[in-house]
Design a protein around this nucleic acid. Sequence first.
DNA 1: ACCTATAATTTCATTTTTGGAATCATGCTG
DNA 2: CAGCATGATTCCAAAAATGAAATTATAGGT
Lengths: 302, 302
Amino acid sequence: MLDDVALFIHIARSRGLSSAAAKLNLPAATVTRRLRKLEEKVGAQLVHRSARKFALTTEGDAYFEAFADLVTQFETARQGLRSDLHELRGRLKVAAPTNISVGLLEPMWSGFLNAYPEIQLTLNLSNENKDLLETQIDLALRVGPQTDMRLYQKRLGCVATMLVASPEYLAATGELNDPEDLRQHKLIWVSALPIWQLSNLDTGLQETLHLSANVAVDDIGLARQLARDGHGIALLPVSEFWENFETGQLHPVLPRWQGQKRDVYAVWPTGRLLNARAKCLRDYVQDYLAERPVFQGALPHL
Amino acid sequence: MLDDVALFIHIARSRGLSSAAAKLNLPAATVTRRLRKLEEKVGAQLVHRSARKFALTTEGDAYFEAFADLVTQFETARQGLRSDLHELRGRLKVAAPTNISVGLLEPMWSGFLNAYPEIQLTLNLSNENKDLLETQIDLALRVGPQTDMRLYQKRLGCVATMLVASPEYLAATGELNDPEDLRQHKLIWVSALPIWQLSNLDTGLQETLHLSANVAVDDIGLARQLARDGHGIALLPVSEFWENFETGQLHPVLPRWQGQKRDVYAVWPTGRLLNARAKCLRDYVQDYLAERPVFQGALPHL
DNA sequence: ACCTATAATTTCATTTTTGGAATCATGCTG
DNA sequence: CAGCATGATTCCAAAAATGAAATTATAGGT
């Protein structure tokens, strides 16, 4: 019956059965019959009609007012779902961490846009985790443990962390032989890596260190900068210095030890269907990360 | 297609095809087929189903979220219209003038309620014309010219007006022979009858008088009371004193002259369908008034 | 008043949908 | 592991809907 009500709404808007039939690509006979069937069900005539004259009855007015907006919303929702579910065109709003996006991942964004020129990508870069529901983000890339239960998450890769310092700092203070030696050093702490959990590449031995930091910051990029400037030893994701590692501005400290690996995730809200574009991007990112050791947990000096 | 979407919503809510079929009073074969047809149109499976297990796909979730509220609104609107249009049960909000409603018309309200015990009548009495749209009145009884173009109106009857004064007042001042004599008297003016247009019952002669009133009030009941108390001559609708006329508390002044007749109307907003209850009441009122001379323009002393 | 053009309705052969009955699938219980 | 109960699907005759073509209705123009 809802289809017949929708038909009636179109008839009312078109102010005639023939023009409604034309708009809906239906024969006039079908429109006539279905309107009459609806009127029989309702138990009232909805339309006064004759050749060249058209008016709604008072019942028809009531029906129109009650259902017109609903029919519009139905059709809008249906259209939106059709295009949103299946088409690789239109808007796609993505959040991603600033550090890796303007560095290692810039070619990935560029490649995606070239591959899908009809997708209008809005890329919100931030090193903070924005609320996806509030900001209406379709998909977010995140690094590190994801604890928000409102989000679906798919693991796309992982990044190792390791201890680094500037060569000047190490020349002044001497090399370290053991994680315990860290206590004698200036340390740069960053909020993303609150606990320093180190594991030995050779023996598999694990140590969790509770250290007192000389400097504490909440931005990984700043921590890298401070380490490079000789202010101490930092535990950093290798993505932060992978590209420039050969320049020697940051040296590994305790090179046979590594920090905990940080997984890279795609996340999106549970209530939200992942449309074709977001799925496409997610798969594109996964493929891109699969081909780069830095996102498969590799270390730059090995 | 909207019918199939609605069916899908019911399937999702019932968490099964068989239970949805039972609720909708449809064969399971029909439900199965129409769901599959919808899935073909959508180009995606909406439901994972097997014997004893049921789950929506992510596309199904999206469809459910997009359409569930709309389907509910559709069904609510449809149910509302069905009952509102045709059933003589439920709410009916009516506005009517206080004076005639607690007097002459009280038996009419009582009779209507007895005749239609399932109608829940809300009777808003006032001698002011309330905004029907704002107060969501279904139907209003009004007396006098109706100039609001947003209202449909149907004339149900009419009430004559005439000049009256207390016997004490007339004994003190003497009888009148001609409308011009009114100028020598104390007059009680009421806003509902701003112009005194008198017509002679015998000759048909009409006079429009522009008089200076001693007292001006905006409530007809108060005007009646003042006249009864000997404060002068008032031009009043006969409905105001029809019942008590034989008690002699108010005497006709210039008994062969009458004031302008005031029509009684049922009015309702043009955009609003007059439902079965309001129609029923309107017709009931018209029949009731038709049987009472006071509402057919009669004078009490003739 | 008549004619024409347009809108609505009706007819009927064809297509599609329906629903009862039969069949299949599967999860739970013993 | 087998059997049973329940849910889902398929089959097919019957019913309903469809749409092209023909017909009817009517409003406007001459």
